[in-house]
Nucleic acid binder design. Structure first.
Length: 403
DNA sequence: TCTGGGGTCCTAGGACCC
DNA sequence: TCTGGGGTCCTAGGACCC
């Protein structure tokens, strides 16, 4: 039986900030905020005031007026994440970063060096604390789900091992909404059916769940309730092409193929001005195209999404005639979609563009551009990529994007 | 001064083909 | 000419996660 560990860095962004600014260590503090922003990560002192990740920054400030808001520094967090990954990798080669602040490890092969799972977990925590000065919680179980639930239960700064025979006793007393994969909507629907705890969920007739949630989701809910899940950890790229070396779009998570690339931006003030909307769509298209080129991907499905002033959303997608990573083409397609929506100038809060239907640039036929005048843009965009690589983001952009 | 940005996966309905 | 069934692809939207 496999033994899987889930390592979760506690209040990650806030911890990285506290590490380099010790004066922040003993005050309520969170990362994020700004105009129309949200809290990305709050330290545990701030959480005592009710401040939580995802909460509007305004609300955090109201709950904790003397708390300190810190501007995010994604580059620093990304570097810290890589350093942690290296530490984890020195204990087992089977490490899969599930996001910037958590990793799954297959530690099945570690028991020649360590007496038991608890010893491996303790070592992971000790090494990250001593080498990276970051607090971390480790959960261990027979598969990914149980390991994840164990770390959720043990955080912050804890360690919990759930033996295979103890899985049901561990999960069944929990509320259904605590399960990884059951969000507010599903929890509410389960509650309506009179199902509140994981134990109750585990004993519902499969037919009932399948009728209510569809065959696949119904089955999945039962698996979750019994703690059945994959124990696969995918650090290796197997027969797939590894992602390009270097930073940037290796945001591609370990092992899994990139499915889409998108960007979105919220306006400072809601707008119904087509000119402003078009130039914002160009800005996000340019971001998407740049990241696609970095990842060496071409895409064929363009999705435009809008969030309106009242927070309702609308999205439309279209399949292009060929593959592209060209910002001009993406922008034109997105604006064509916008026009086809025939909106009556509603106030728009946010615009987003996402490209999917991705394919590796190296083995995808790129449709020749018919309009010769367009040909120059590809080269120009490549040149901009190079300049950005040398001098950093912000050195160059289209004249139309300069505010 | 309410509510970001980056993703993945699933479902349902319609088009289309056999 | 009428009819049914199944498979697949595309699109829109919802749910969820960090």
């Amino acid at each position: 039986m496999a033994v899987i560990a889930h390592a979760d860095l506690d209040a990650f962004y806030a911890s990285v900030e506290a590490r380099r600014r010790p004066e922040l260590r003993h005050v309520p503090m969170w990362v994020g905020g700004g105009h129309r922003g949200v809290v990305l990560s709050a330290n545990y002192l701030a959480r005592e005031y009710g401040v939580r990740g995802g909460m509007p920054a305004q609300q955090a400030k109201r709950l904790c007026p003397h708390g300190v808001a810190v501007k995010p520094d994604m580059e620093a967090y990304s570097e810290a994440s890589k350093a942690v990954r290296d530490v984890l990798g020195s204990i087992t080669p089977f490490v899969e970063m599930a996001s910037i602040d958590e990793a799954y490890l297959d530690i099945s092969g570690c028991f020649k060096l360590y007496p038991d799972a608890r010893a491996v977990g303790a070592q992971l925590r000790a090494r990250i604390a001593s080498e990276e000065s970051l607090p971390c919680t480790v959960g261990i179980g027979p598969n990914r789900l149980v390991a994840k639930m164990a770390s959720n239960t043990a955080k912050p700064d804890g360690l919990l091992v759930v033996e295979p025979e103890a899985v049901a006793d561990f999960l069944h007393p929990m509320q259904v909404g605590q399960l990884h994969g059951i969000g507010p909507a599903t929890a509410a629907k389960l509650n309506q059916l009179g199902i509140y705890t994981v134990g109750e969920l585990a004993h519902v007739r499969p037919q009932t769940l399948k009728r209510a949630f569809g065959p696949k989701s119904g089955e999945q809910l039962l698996n979750l309730a019994w703690g059945r899940a994959s124990a696969r950890v995918a650090p290796a790229f197997g027969n797939r092409t590894p992602p390009p070396a270097g930073d940037g779009a290796d945001a591609a998570k370990d092992g899994r193929e990139m499915v889409s690339v998108g960007a979105q931006e919220t306006f400072m003030v809601d707008t119904d001005d087509p000119k402003i909307i078009s130039s914002e769509v160009l800005r996000v298209s340019s971001k998407v195209a740049h990241r696609m080129r970095q990842a060496q991907k071409l895409g064929t499905v363009c999705t435009l999404s809008l969030r309106f002033a009242n927070f309702s959303e609308l999205s439309r997608s279209r399949t292009l005639a060929g593959y592209t990573d060209d910002e001009g083409e993406i922008h034109r397609e997105a604006m064509r979609i916008f026009a086809s929506m025939k909106l009556d100038r509603p106030r728009i809060r946010r615009v987003g563009v996402r490209m999917s239907g991705l394919s590796d640039a190296s083995n995808t036929y790129l449709q020749p551009v018919l309009d010769e005048a367009e040909r120059g843009w590809r080269e120009a965009e490549r040149a901009v990529d190079k300049a950005i690589q040398r001098f950093g983001t912000g050195v160059m952009s289209r004249a139309a994007l300069i505010r």
